[in-house]
Amino acid sequence: MKNKSLQIGDKKFQSRLFTGTGKFSSSQLMRDSLLASESELITVALKRVDVQNNEDDILSHLQHPHISLLPNTSGVRNAKEAIFAAELSREALETNWVKLEIHPDPKYLLPDPIETLKAAEELVKKGFVVMPYIHADPVLCKKLEDVGCQCVMPLGAPIGSNKGLKTLDFLEIIIEQSNVPVVVDAGIGSPSHAAFAMEIGADAVLVNTAIAVSQNPVEMAIAFKMAVEAGRMAYEAKLAPKRNFAEASSPLTQFLND
């Protein structure tokens, strides 16, 4: 059984596993891993690539008919810089898709909600498909949806931490309320985390560190692919409800039927 495809903006994705390009030990290993993951949307930090150079090592390793590039603005500190970066990338990489990352805090790379909302509104007006990386903040997600973001990307845990869905309660509220796809970004450290995110109804997950830093990135990429498919399949098949208590063999209310 194939998972239902996911639509964001004008694109349809068969794979609900989005990936990133950082931290790999070589560009070739990055390519091999990302192809093995069957990911169709791959984010790349604009600061890591030379957008003017056709032979840029990272960009040249990402050329493949199944791969759409998702440039990200990692490194910018405010809305103004983010908008400038997005416009440069649209011109150079010929895509109006942008993963909006604004983190004034260079230590934990936590996103700035105020600047993100400001930049998102402006970028949508300029015709971008905006995918904002944000805290798992349900109100902010609704506001980003209101200004026209095509999806929201709340974090599961601090980026690169591999800690899993620490923000679970808030992710569940976001998923419940959202009219746009919810992509859990950051913190997913193992395939079971990814499967869990899909089971609770996330539309996709974005994974980078857990694949790039594993001992065998290609195998790990395949494991994530399978976990995301399994999690989504379970979600679509509807999980059996959880119970806090066992069903009693001698129900207390039996007398009502006697």
């Binding site: 890591r48 910018v76 400038f84 970066a85 440069l88």
Partner: peptide, 18 residues
């Protein structure tokens, strides 16, 4: 670095944004 499974990174910033 490559022999040790490490990639030499040459560019990791963009000075035209600010």
């Amino acid at each position: 670095l490559q022999k040790q499974g490490l990639e030499a990174v040459w560019k990791d910033w963009e000075n035209n944004w600010a």
